[in-house]
Amino acid sequence: MSDIADEPAPMREPVLSLRGISKHFGAVSALTDIDLDVHAGEVVALVGDNGAGKSTLVKILAGAHQPSSGTIAFQGRQVTLPDPSAALRLGIATVFQDLALCENLDVVANIFLGRELSPVRLDEVSMEIRAWTLLNELSARIPSVREPVASLSGGQRQTVAIARSLLLEPQVILLDEPTAALGVAQTAEVLNLIERVRDRGLGVVMISHNMEDVRAVADRIVVLRLGRNNGIFTPDASNQELVSAITGASDNSVSRRAGRRSAVAGRNPEAHP
């Protein structure tokens, strides 16, 4: 575990490598010429404003969307991801922003969907135990795993979706705004978890709008703007740099606001992401 984590990540071959990925939805170019590398044992934060194309990129990696052009390499081999099962087979697990749970099924069924134990005679007991174990690892507060997912709160559903992605023992895990619906304790729990899976040698791609969370766990911060790469930063980059990369201007409402505050309070603007 430690010898993987100690090595500086960019020295090794990336586990996932995108080159020149573009995606058009009719006239809309959601992504143009995107490059992205994810190494084993590395957390890459993907940031950008709403509509920057983050979710689209994640869906392409999950096999849910097909890129219009560009190449994807997984562990050095060029691959195509024609459908989600192809991505899952390679070991790319995804927590989608729109969660993608079946509301009519219970928590256990959702966690194991597509990967049920003993297909012709479902092993409900083992599946329930494994589900509770995963949920407890996440410190989840789920009243019953035998209720339909429709009866859970947004945060609880988020936890179910994350538990689902961990079940696979993936190589790479993609998290699209995993903490957006979570409470304080659970957000911390998810960030801890991200560090744990990173230390196990997995590659993690996390999308978040919360710069504090991003800085806390990311090894690299990749900025998308209007569907294009707009810089790669380290977590110690200043807030101003990040914000201007995200919004595309150094003089903008966010930095002006931050500037005013620091002038008034004499505080470091980075404390106010």
């Binding site: 999950a62 849910a64 459908d83 989600p84 099962s85 899952l88 087979r89 995804t94 989608f96 969660l99 993608a100 749970l101 079946c102 509301e103 009519n104 099924l105 069924a109 969907l113 597509g114 990967r115 049920e116 479902l122």
Partner: peptide
């Protein structure tokens, strides 16, 4: 289980790798 999932949320079933 797959039948029920597809009837409940086709896209979620697809993303779970169900054919």
């Amino acid at each position: 289980r797959s039948m029920t999932a597809v009837g409940g949320n086709r896209e979620a079933a697809r993303r779970a790798g169900i054919n």
